[in-house]
Design a protein around this nucleic acid. Sequence first.
DNA 1: CTGAAAGCGCTAACAC
DNA 2: GTGTTAGCGCTTTCAG
Lengths: 343, 343
Amino acid sequence: MAVSARDVARMAGVSVSTVSRTLARPDQVAPETRDKVVAAARALGYRANPAARSLITGQTGTLGLVVPDLENPYFTSVTKGVQKRAQAAGYALLVADSDEHSGQEAELVRNMASRVDGTVLCSPRASDDVIAGLAQEFRLVLVNRRVGDIPAITVDNADGVRQALHHLRALGHGRVAYVGGPRDSWSHGERLAAFRSIGAELDLDLVELGNFRPYVSGGVAAADILIASGATAVLAYNDLLALGLLERLRQRGVRVPEDLSVVGVDNVPVAALTSPALTSVEVPRMESGRAAVDLLLAEVREGVHTAGATQDLSVQLVVRGSTGTPAAAGGAAVRHPAGVVTT
Amino acid sequence: MAVSARDVARMAGVSVSTVSRTLARPDQVAPETRDKVVAAARALGYRANPAARSLITGQTGTLGLVVPDLENPYFTSVTKGVQKRAQAAGYALLVADSDEHSGQEAELVRNMASRVDGTVLCSPRASDDVIAGLAQEFRLVLVNRRVGDIPAITVDNADGVRQALHHLRALGHGRVAYVGGPRDSWSHGERLAAFRSIGAELDLDLVELGNFRPYVSGGVAAADILIASGATAVLAYNDLLALGLLERLRQRGVRVPEDLSVVGVDNVPVAALTSPALTSVEVPRMESGRAAVDLLLAEVREGVHTAGATQDLSVQLVVRGSTGTPAAAGGAAVRHPAGVVTT
DNA sequence: CTGAAAGCGCTAACAC
DNA sequence: GTGTTAGCGCTTTCAG
C-alpha cells in the first residue's frame, strides 16, 4: 500500500487531521507544525488518495471527454486542447471514443459520470432529447452542438460557409456542390443550411451531393457523383472528405483546381500537405477544447449551472492551391466579375 | 447526491451487503432476492460509486496512458487502440500528453498513478533510470521502449529498416540518407543502429543527417541538407518527417521519386494521400495499443508482475509512388543490379 | 491552533 | 443465503 496520511502524521508527530489541514489550508496551521508536516510528507513521498478524498468531497479532480473518433485529426486537436487545459488546471482527463456511433454516446457519458466532475461532449450525434436528458443528470459542456441552453462551444459555421462561397463566387464559379457529412451531425446541418441560404443570396447554382461518412473514404465515394454533377467547385463538410475528393479526382484525371475547385472545413494539418494544398475554412480546434474546459471548470467551481454560458468562435478561410478560376473544360464561364469581399 | 446502495437496499427490503453481493456475485444470492435487488437497482438507476469501491478494493477500474504528442497521428492511433481495448474490458482511460518533453513524463505518470490500476507509457523520452524507477513504484507497460525487463510492446524496427534498405538497394540506390528523430527516442536509436549495420551489409553508401523534431517542420528543415548530401534515397525516422521532406523537395524542384526516393516509417493514414504517395514501413499502430492494454490487464488481474512479458510486433513495407529507380539527375548510377528480395 | 470523532459509500469477513 | 460489523483514507465539524 502507498503511504497514507497516517504515516505522515506519525512521522511528523501530529494527528491525521493536521496533516489534512496543512495540505488544504496551510495558513490555518502553525508555521512550525506546517514545516514538520511538509517535511514528513515530502520525505515519504505522500500523495493523498483521490478516492478517499472524492468520497468525502464529492469531487473527483477528473474531467471527461467523449468524441466521435479519436483518429479524426479534428477531434485529435480538440482532445489535445482539452487535455492541456485540464492538466493546467490540475485535472486528470478521461477520454472515450464513440466510433461515430450515436447510440454509444449516452452510455459513455453515463459510464464516466461517476468518475468525473463534468464531461465535454464533442460533436455528439445523439438526438436533442437524449442530450438534454444527459445534461439534466450530469454536468455537461457541448462542443459543436446546441441543445437548449446547455453550455456549449460552437464555431461560426455559417460564416465559414459564407467565406467559402463568396470566395468561390469571386473566382467566378457558378455551379457549386456541397458534399455533406453525417446526417446526425449538427455542424453538417448548420453548414448545409448556410450553403443553401448564402448560395441563394449569391445567386449560385447549388447542388447537394448527399451525406457521406466523414472519412477520406467518404470523399472518394462522393467524387464520381461530384464529377457527374457538372459543378465547377465543391465545398466539403470537412477536410477528410475534401481529401478523399482530391484523391479520387486525381485518379479520374480531373485537374484541381483547373477543372474543379475544392474547399474543405477544419484546416487540419494535413490539408497543407497535399498537392495542390487544400483550401479550407480554419476552425479553432484546440481552442474549442480549451474553451470547453473553461466553461466546465467555471461550473464545477461555482457549483452553479451557468445556464446558457456559451461561446461561438470565429473561423477563417485559408486559401491554398486547390481553388482557382474555373477553366474552359467542364467549367462554367465567369458570369460575374470577381468583386466580392471575403472579409 | 446520487442514489446509493442504501437506497437500493431500502427499496428492495434487504441489507446493503446483499445489494453489493448481488452485483458482485449474483450466484451467491437467492434468485428471488436477486430479482428484487436488480429491479430496485434498475428502477433507481443505481451505479456503484467507484471512489468508495476503490477505497476498499484498491482497484480503480481505470487505466492510464501517457504519450509524447496526441496530435501526432501515430500516437493518435495508439491512443485509439488503447482506448478501445480498455473500454472493451470495462476500464476507463486517463490520457496525458507530455508535449515531447521528456522531463514531464515521470510527473504525469506519478500524477495519474493513484487514479489508475496501471499505466501505458508510450514512446517515453525519459532516461532508463527514470523509467526503471517509475516501474518499481507503479504498474507500467512500455510501448516502443525496452528498459530492463519491464513489460513492453515494441515493433521490429530493425526489420523495418531492413525491408526499406533492401527495397532501395533493389531499386539501384547506392547512396542513402537517414533523417533522424529525437535523440532521446529509443525507436530512433534502434532505427539508426539498423540503418548502419544493414546499410553496411548491403554495401550502401550511408549518410546520417542528424536529429530532427518528429514533425513535418523537422522534415522541411532536413530537406536542404538532404539535397546537399548527394543521396539518391532517404529513409526518415517517421512519416511526419518524410512528409516534411516531400513538401520542401517539391518547393526546391527536386522530383520525387525521379530524383530522390523517400521512405517513411509508421504508414500513417495521410501517407497515402500525398502525391506521390509516400512509401512507408507500416507498423501496427492500434495493435500496439491493444497489446499494451492486454499486458497491463494480465498483470492487474493476476496481481503479479509478469516480468519480461513483452511482445515484438512485426512490420511491413508499403510501397507507393515515392520510391523509384534513381535517375540520371543528381543520381548515382545503378551500381548493383536489382536482385534483392524484399520479403 | 490542534486532536478526537464521525462518516463519505462501499466491500469483505464473520456470524447467524 | 443474508445481515451485522468493521473499516478503506480522507475531510470536516466540534471541542478543547
